[in-house]
Structures are given as structure tokens and as C-alpha cells.
Computed example of a mutant assay.
Amino acid sequence: MSAEDGEVIIGEDTVVMEQALVRGRATHPARIGAAVMIGPHVHVNGSHVEDEAFIATGAALFPGSRVGAGAEVRINGVVQVNTALPAGAVVPIGWVAVGDPASILPPDRHEEIWAVQRELGFVETVYGVSSDAPMRAIMRAQSEYYGAHAADVVIDG
């Protein structure tokens, strides 16, 4: 778990399996409801997951995304930035949910996914800079974000 600059809240009876990352962000805390399964190698970054959801191995939930109660994101499924997956919805293996409300599309429909995703503010939401910022500016912001821990000291416990 990583609360770099935002909260991580985990509900009762929720299981977070090995090698999963749950990261809270200042503008998008990670909120995981009760009785949720977060499988191995899952990436939950500033997402809100409601009760009794199932997030399978390798899934990725981007900042600002919301996964409704009882929804399933199956193996390697993606819930894109600022996307709202409704209660009970299923993202099939390797598919992408994108938009608010979510369209659920197979990865070979990239052009349709991108048509929605480009309007969701990915760069602004994830990196906190303008979508037209050059890569150098984006990576400078990320270096500063993670560099906040450069002076941290390991404490033996």
C-alpha cells in the first residue's frame, strides 16, 4: 500500500493479495469497500471500489475511476482514468472500461477506446500537468513527486 499524498482506506473482510499495489493520491484517495477481492499483481491507483467487487489478477484501476458494488474486473482488465463502472458490470479478460458511464470494449477496438479516453483528462489526472505538456515536463513533475522521499531514513524496528 502506498499513501504518497492521499489516503488508502480498506473495508472489512477485504483481501489484498500478493504483489498488488493500492495507492492513494491527494486528489483521488484509494477507497476499497467491504468484502472485496484484490487479486495478485493488481494496480489500484486512486480508485474507489465499492463493496463485494472482484478485481482479478493483473487488473489496473486508474485514478478517478469508480467500480460499482458487485462489479468484476477480470484478469488483466482495465478501468481507465475517470471511468465509472456500474454496479454488477463485468470487464471481461483483457478488456477496457472507459468513460462515464463506462463503455466496455475489447483491446482490438483501440480507436474507439481512444476516442473516449482522450476526453477523460488522463495526463491532467495522473500527472497533474496540462495534456499538451512535453514529456520532459511530465517526467519532471513525476520525479519531484517521488523525489519527496529522497531524504527518507530506514528505521530498524
Rank of each mutant, 00 (worst) to 15 (best):
F62W: 14
R31L: 13
G58R: 12
N76A: 12
F54K: 12
G33A: 06
R31P: 02
G46C: 09
V78H: 01
I75W: 07
R25E: 10
G70K: 05
Q80S: 14
M37Y: 12
F54V: 14
F54H: 08
E72S: 14
I38V: 15
P29Y: 09
R74Y: 08
A53T: 00
A34S: 13
M37W: 08
A59D: 05
R31V: 15
R74P: 04
A34M: 10
I38M: 04
A59Q: 00
H48F: 04
V67L: 10
L61S: 11
P63A: 13
G46Y: 06
A26K: 14
D51K: 09
R66S: 09
G77E: 07
E72V: 08
R66T: 11
G68F: 04
G70C: 11
T27M: 07
G39Y: 04
I75R: 06
N76G: 02
E52G: 01
V44L: 11
A53N: 01
A30I: 07
E52V: 05
G70R: 06
N76P: 02
M37A: 10
V67D: 08
A26V: 03
L61W: 13
A35Y: 13
V49D: 04
V79Q: 09
E72Y: 10
V42E: 10
H48W: 10
H28E: 06
R25F: 14
E52A: 12
G64C: 11
G68I: 00
R25H: 07
G39Q: 02
G24V: 09
G39R: 05
R31G: 03
N82V: 08
Q80F: 08
E50G: 07
R25I: 14
A59V: 04
V78T: 12
